[in-house]
Design a protein around this nucleic acid. Structure first.
Lengths: 105, 105
DNA sequence: CTTTTAGTTTGATGGTTATCGAACTATAAA
DNA sequence: TTTATAGTTCGATAACCATCAAACTAAAAG
């Protein structure tokens, strides 16, 4: 069980964050995390109707872009938004993401 | 000389806009347009050290994502930001783009 | 200990993208 | 009319990406 790596926000280019957010399923994951605070992968496999390996892939990209952080509890992985850090480094970005209407994704 | 097509902002998904902005050279073009108001392609060929066909490609993606509009004058094409429309549809997004420091792109 | 459950990793596939050079179009200049 | 200039389009290439299934890892349940 290797621990999850969470990059320092300072090392992450803005374009990398935008790229992570520019995939519709990943954007849905981020928006879902705002509502629920914390979720695990099986939640998204169900909600997005994606294979679990695909979800794992998207989660990894979001994590490496500094957008989410993970916590392992038993055999479940829980993820949450790195809200304050992102807001500190890239002010207004997450507000913009959450302001968008579902039908405009 | 077929006229340039500018899609209505209402037809453009947020993820498409993010994707257009997630490429560093395209993001530089957008940020440059904020400063200068209007520019043509040769400006960017020089500034970004890219082949003119590559610049043309990026400009097209930005235009089709609803971010810029073009005006043809003689043999030069001038581009400008669709600032107000974007701000109306996706509030805060452009502010976030302009708030980023050059070294964090 | 065996089985189930949650998730990652790997390999493959089909699609997309950034880049360039060459050919093309259209306007302006000589 | 010939030439130069600004930009688009096309074709090719190499890299990247979203997706899935299969194999793997680790923890919980039986």
């Amino acid at each position: 069980m290797k621990p999850l790596h969470h990059p320092s926000i300072d090392t992450i280019p803005y374009t990398k964050v935008l790229h992570a957010l520019s995939e519709p399923n990943r954007l849905r994951i981020i928006r879902c995390l705002r509502e629920s605070g914390e979720n695990n992968c099986s939640t998204y496999s169900l909600e997005l109707m994606l294979n679990k390996s695909t979800v794992s892939h998207h989660i990894k990209i979001l994590r490496e872009a500094g957008l989410i952080k993970g916590r392992i509890e038993g055999k479940e992985h829980y993820y949450s938004l790195r809200k304050d850090e992102i807001e500190q480094k890239f002010p207004g970005l997450l507000s913009s993401v959450f302001a968008v209407k579902d039908e405009d994704l």
